[in-house]
């Protein structure tokens, strides 16, 4: 149990630093700053207390917001991802996910990629809709969601295969 807290705490700090120091300054093609910290929601233990998960995601989003002076955009996006995660899991992994012995090991890579893709998609849509907050800029929102979303998804998929947790 302690190792789980330690591991997630370590990830939490490392992902914040990676996001604000590396990926926020990337500006690929002038505007693409992938939001890679979404992978935190992918890695977070499945059977953990949901209330704590929501609180942790609130703090994660708020910290990144303070660093990047985009107050409360990342927070709302993270909260929404944390809240909808069980729903997305049921959608991707079916009823299997309800069983006690469920783990990522006995799922197919396609299922995992779909799950990750949906997490990224929900996060991007909430984030950019709030950032721009104007229906007249719908095309701009769409452009940002897809461009940033694809880069984020590729990076997250790479990270998840590079640092795949063995014990969970």
């Amino acid at each position: 149990m302690n190792s789980v807290i330690f591991l997630n705490g370590f990830r939490f700090i490392l992902l914040i630093l990676a996001q604000v120091l590396i990926f926020n300054t990337l500006n690929f093609m002038g505007f693409i700053n992938p939001l890679v910290y979404v992978i935190f929601f992918y890695w977070y233990p499945i059977k953990a207390n949901r209330a704590i998960f929501i609180l942790v995601s609130f703090i994660l989003g708020l910290t990144i917001d303070i660093f990047s002076d985009t107050l409360a955009l990342h927070t709302v996006a993270s909260l929404t991802v944390a809240y909808t995660r069980p729903l997305l899991m049921r959608f991707c992994f079916g009823v299997n996910y309800e069983f006690q012995n469920f783990s990522f090991k006995n799922t197919t890579p396609i299922q995992r990629l779909t799950f990750l893709g949906l997490l990224v998609f929900v996060h991007q849509v909430v984030f950019f809709s709030l950032e721009i907050l104007s229906i007249s800029h719908f095309v701009l929102i769409l452009k940002k969601v897809f461009a940033t979303g694809i880069v984020t998804l590729v990076l997250c998929a790479l990270f998840s295969s590079l640092f795949s947790p063995r014990s969970e």
């Binding site: 708020l62 409360a72 955009l73 709302v76 909260l79 809240y83 907050l133």
Partner: peptide
């Protein structure tokens, strides 16, 4: 309780967002 927690925290952050 989770839905309430989510609703409450989202409301707080939305208020901050709109203010900003």
């Amino acid at each position: 309780r989770n839905a309430f927690l989510y609703g409450f925290l989202t409301f707080v952050s939305l208020v901050i967002t709109v203010r900003s």
